[in-house]
Simulated scan of single mutants.
Amino acid sequence: MLNIQEIRKNPDGLAFDKKLDLTEELKGRNAEILDVQGIVASGKAQYEDGLYFLDYDLSYTITLASSRSMEPVELQESYLVNEVFMEEGKTASQELIDQDLVLPIEKGEINLAESVADNILLHIPLKILTAAEEAGQGFLSGQDWQVMTEEEFAAAQAAKKEENSPFADLQGLFDE
């Protein structure tokens, strides 16, 4: 928690470097998350012209299930987060809050853990693959079916079309 009074007192901003353990909260909010480790947020919060700026580097390791095989995949993430907060109650600020341009400050504090959790959830990729799956291996198959790339499918369709051609029987007729 970052108190807005402390932020106002420091003209250069209030620096922080926090290690957070949000694994259970994140698992509760998104069932796709298997594990989150090493969450570190370091940056500063500043006050300027009625606005509170929260800028920090966020890094962590998240474990998610592969989109294709459901095997656990660890992803190293690191990115910058920039958020703008404003105290509620002012008419000008309420318009900005309603338009989602700024976030409201509740109870005189900026909740860093909530910001970190929200940003981790926002950065979960839709497509998660193991190293073998990214290399083009590990496609699933079964009895009379298999998963194939678009290129493999196009080649199979071309071969099938050539095979079903009425002129396919004439192939090799004049080879002798």
Score class of each variant (00 low, 15 high):
71 E>C: 06
96 L>P: 07
122 L>V: 04
121 L>K: 09
87 E>V: 01
147 V>D: 03
13 G>I: 11
163 E>A: 15
126 L>S: 15
55 D>S: 06
135 A>E: 13
82 N>I: 12
26 L>E: 00
80 L>S: 05
164 N>P: 05
131 A>I: 15
44 K>L: 15
122 L>D: 02
105 I>E: 03
135 A>F: 06
107 K>M: 08
106 E>V: 15
127 K>E: 07
34 L>D: 06
136 G>V: 03
29 R>E: 00
90 K>A: 14
87 E>M: 01
25 E>N: 10
144 D>K: 13
81 V>C: 11
72 P>W: 00
113 A>F: 05
15 A>T: 08
130 T>D: 00
106 E>R: 15
41 A>L: 09
49 D>G: 04
172 G>Y: 09
106 E>K: 15
111 N>D: 13
13 G>Q: 12
104 P>C: 04
144 D>R: 12
33 I>V: 10
15 A>N: 04
41 A>R: 10
101 L>I: 12
119 N>V: 08
57 D>Y: 03
102 V>K: 04
13 G>Y: 12
134 E>T: 05
168 A>R: 14
34 L>Q: 14
171 Q>F: 10
129 L>G: 05
4 I>Y: 04
32 E>K: 13
10 N>I: 12
89 G>W: 01
55 D>F: 05
74 E>N: 08
39 I>C: 03
25 E>Q: 13
15 A>S: 09
116 V>W: 09
119 N>T: 07
175 D>R: 10
23 T>K: 14
26 L>D: 00
71 E>L: 11
130 T>L: 00
48 E>H: 12
145 W>E: 01
3 N>C: 10
44 K>M: 15
149 T>V: 01
60 Y>F: 15
88 E>D: 04
84 V>S: 09
142 G>A: 00
76 Q>V: 11
55 D>T: 09
52 Y>C: 03
72 P>S: 02
65 A>H: 08
156 A>H: 09
165 S>R: 08
117 A>F: 04
65 A>V: 05
68 R>G: 01
40 V>M: 05
27 K>G: 04
143 Q>F: 13
97 I>G: 01
6 E>Q: 14
140 L>N: 11
87 E>F: 02
11 P>T: 15
125 P>V: 01
136 G>P: 03
164 N>R: 11
127 K>L: 12
9 K>M: 08
35 D>Q: 15
165 S>K: 07
30 N>E: 11
100 D>R: 06
27 K>M: 07
1 M>G: 07
161 K>D: 15
150 E>T: 06
154 A>E: 13
51 L>N: 14
1 M>C: 04
133 E>C: 02
109 E>M: 09
90 K>S: 15
4 I>S: 00
124 I>V: 03
78 S>W: 02
130 T>P: 00
51 L>G: 12
137 Q>P: 02
80 L>D: 08
19 K>V: 13
175 D>L: 08
35 D>L: 13
